Simulated assay, not measured.
Amino acid sequence: MALPPAWQRFWHWWQDQLSQAIPQQLRSWFSHRQPILIALPSEEELQAWQWEGRGQAVPLRPLAQPSGLEAMLSSLRARESAEEVSFTLVLLPGQYLRKTILLPSAVEENLRQVIAFELDRQTPFSADQVYFTSRIVERLPASRQLKVEIVLTPRAFLDAQLTRLHQANLKPHRVDAALLEGQTPVPLGLDLLPSRWRPRETRWQKRLDWSLAGVLAALLGLALALPLVMQHRILSALEAQVAQLRKAAQASSALQQQVTALEQAARFGITRKQATPPMIVAIEELAQRLPQDTWLTGFSYRNGELRIDGSSPNASKLIEILESSPIFQNTHFVSPVTQDRNTGLERFQISMTLGYERDAPK
Rank of each mutant, 00 (worst) to 15 (best):
T163V: 05
R27Q: 12
Q274W: 08
Q258G: 05
E108K: 15
V175T: 08
T88C: 10
E149G: 05
S253M: 12
P291T: 08
Q329E: 11
E305R: 15
L37G: 01
F328D: 05
L219H: 03
N110M: 06
T133D: 09
A156H: 10
Q161C: 10
D309I: 04
F328S: 04
S134C: 12
S312N: 04
P41M: 03
L146E: 05
R155E: 08
L290W: 08
W11Y: 11
L40K: 04
Q339Y: 03
S312V: 06
P124N: 10
A160S: 14
L306P: 01
I270M: 13
L73G: 07
E138S: 11
R358V: 14
I115E: 07
D191C: 05
H332C: 01
V337N: 01
W7T: 09
G304S: 11
R307T: 15
R267F: 12
L89P: 02
V259K: 12
T163C: 02
G344W: 05
S86P: 00
R98A: 12
G355E: 08
V242N: 09
P326W: 06
P104L: 04
K147S: 13
T276C: 02
R200Y: 02
H12R: 15
G304P: 10
L152E: 01
H232P: 00
V107E: 14
R246M: 06
F30T: 14
A240V: 06
V175I: 10
N303M: 05
L76Y: 11
G344K: 04
L162Q: 04
Q264Y: 06
Q205H: 04
I319C: 02
A287D: 10
A78N: 10
M279K: 06
Q15G: 07
I115C: 07
R135K: 07
V242W: 08
W11Q: 11
E201Y: 06
G304F: 13
Q113T: 05
P93R: 08
A156Q: 15
D191I: 04
I327G: 01
V85Y: 04
A360E: 07
T100M: 06
A6W: 05
Q257A: 15
R61P: 00
W197F: 14
A6H: 09
L188P: 00
K99P: 00
L345K: 14
W49D: 08
F299K: 01
L18N: 08
H32S: 13
